[in-house]
Amino acid sequence: MNPLALLARIGRLALDWLSAIGRVALFGLSTLTHMLRPPFYGRETLNALLHIGWLSLPVVGLTAIFTGGALALQIYAGGARFNAEAVVPQIVAIGMVRELGPVLVGLMIAARVTSSIAAEIATMKVTEQIDALVTLSTNPMQYLVAPRVLAAFLTVPLLVGIGDIIGIAGGYAVAVHNLDFNAAAYLKNTVDFLEPLDIISSLVKGAAFGTLASLMGCYYGMQSGRGAQGVGRATKGSVEAAAVLILAANFLLTGAFFSV
C-alpha cells in the first residue's frame, strides 16, 4: 500500500475518533445543562430510578455473591503457596470494595441498563416517537436523557455499596463454611482492614460508572440509524463503549485515589 494512503487512512481514523469524543463530550454537556434547568420530569425520573436501581438489585447481588465466594477460594488457595491463608478476609474486603465491586456492578449495569436504554431510545427514534415528542413541545433530552442519567448517577453508587457488602458476605460464607475460618475473627479483620477512602473510592467509582453507562445508552440511542439494524448497532455500540469507558475510568480513578 502507498505509504501516503496509509498515513491518510490513519489520519482519518484519528480524526473520526477525535470527532466522536467531541460529540460524546457535547452530548454529556448538553445532558448536564438539561438536568439543571426546568421542566423536571419527576415521574420519568422515578421510573428510571426503579428500572436502573431497584430492578438491577438481583443481578448485582448474584454477581457480587459469587464473585466474593470465588475470591475467597482463590486467595485461600493462592495464599497457601506461601502460608498466607489468613489474609482471606482482608483481601476479599479490599478486592471487593476497591475494584471488583464497582467494576463488576458497572459492567453489569452496562449489560443490563445501557443496552436497554439504547434499544428503547433507538426504537423510539426509528418509530418517530422522538419526533412526536418534539411536536408535542417536549424536549427529548429533558424527557428521556436527563432522568435516566440522573437516576444512574444516584443509584449505581448504592448498587455498588450493596454489591460490596454482598460480595464480602459471599467471601465470609465460603471462608466460614468451607475453609473453617472463625466467623467473629473474619468479620473483625474485614472491618479493621477497610479504610474510609476504600469505601469513598468505591462509591465515587459507582457514580462515575453509572453516569458513563447511562450516557452511552442515551447517546447511542439518540444517534441510532434506521430500521432493526440501526437499533441493533446502537445497542451493541452502546454496551461496547460503556464497558470500555468504565474500565478506562476505573484505571484513572484508581490512580487518582491510590497512586503512591
Binding site: M124, T127, E128, Q129, D131, A132
Partner: peptide, 8 residues
C-alpha cells in the same frame, strides 16, 4: 405520524 408514533 405514519406509524402512529404512540409512546409504548
Amino acid at each position: 405520524f405514519q406509524g402512529g408514533a404512540l409512546f409504548d
